[in-house]
């Protein structure tokens, strides 16, 4: 990767208005940068990769949100953006005619959803009619700067694949900078640390290699990958995710069937959900 130049708002980036891409504006036939970011100039056009900024929802994005309010016809969801989102009852498949909205999702619950519609007044509507979408009852949510999300995903998902294969955990990245991690606690912790490193060093080069090294180092430090045990732990771990998935589904079902019932699993997921919120606030 070539080192890119840092540009500030108002810097002249091109004299051809036809090349103007995201992060630029045209005035008097000239193209200027409008945000702080890295200049990406190719034959196709000029764009600025922002270094900072809030998440602005766009159609079809996967987002992770926290339910802020339950209303008669849906849920109001905080998606870590200047705009709050609304999840209508018909858009949540978990909703059955004989159930109340606050039995399905209550205040403080985290969900994975997709942006279904945005009207010109920036009223955002979410949907959960997708196999990726689910309420989050287990795992951990990590919050990062939304502009760094593309780096966490990597080129064609290279970074996320690396994390998943090295650590054997479930990861879902919300475009709004919230990332859900699920799996072995220690491995999730390593992933969390790795994600923070990616966030910090997003605009530098050779990041994937450094992250690979970092994960290997941390795995050894935490005793997850002693040279002799490598094969053993990996075979063990290979089975874990499926179990986790099953557990999770069970938990979800349990929670749906009897919310008041506090089974061990339910308690665990509750405490984890709290943990999630704490993480998120941080």
């Amino acid at each position: 990767m070539i080192s890119r130049k840092i540009v500030l708002p108002g810097d002249l980036v091109s004299t051809n208005p036809k090349t103007a891409g995201p992060g630029t504006y045209v005035e008097g036939g000239k193209v200027y940068a409008r945000v702080l970011g890295l200049l990406d100039k190719t034959d196709l056009g000029v764009r600025i990769i922002p270094l900072k900024g809030r998440y602005i929802p766009s159609l079809g994005d996967t987002v992770i949100g926290i339910v802020k309010e339950v209303t008669a016809n849906g849920w109001i969801v905080d998606i870590n953006s200047p705009y709050i989102a609304f999840l209508p009852i018909p858009e949540n498949p978990a909703m059955k005619p004989n159930r109340k909205p606050n039995d399905v999702l209550d205040i403080g619950d985290a969900i994975i959803a997709k942006v279904m519609n945005i009207d010109p007044k920036m009223k955002v509507t979410l949907t959960m009619k997708d196999k990726l979408c689910r309420p989050i009852r287990v795992g951990r949510i990590v919050a990062i700067n939304p502009t760094r999300v593309p780096r966490v995903i990597g080129k064609k998902g290279s970074m996320i694949k690396l994390l998943k294969s090295e650590l054997d955990i479930q990861i879902i990245v919300g475009q709004n900078g919230l990332i859900w991690l699920n799996g072995d606690r220690r491995k999730v912790s390593i992933a969390e640390e790795a994600i923070y490193i990616i966030e910090q060093e997003a605009h530098t080069e050779g990041l994937t290699d450094r992250i690979t090294e970092f994960i290997k180092k941390r795995k050894v430090e935490l005793g997850l990958a002693e040279p002799e045990e490598v094969g053993k732990t990996e075979t063990e771990q290979a089975e874990v995710p499926e179990e986790f998935k099953e557990n999770e589904e069970k938990k979800v079902e349990e929670a749906e069937e009897s919310v008041t019932e506090t089974e061990n699993a339910g308690e665990k997921s509750e405490s984890k959900a709290k943990e999630c919120q704490l993480e998120e606030r941080r």
Partner: peptide, 11 residues
């Protein structure tokens, strides 16, 4: 403002 990543015409 620049540090916050807010789009601006200049400084």
């Amino acid at each position: 403002l620049v540090d916050a990543g807010i789009p601006m015409k200049g400084m």
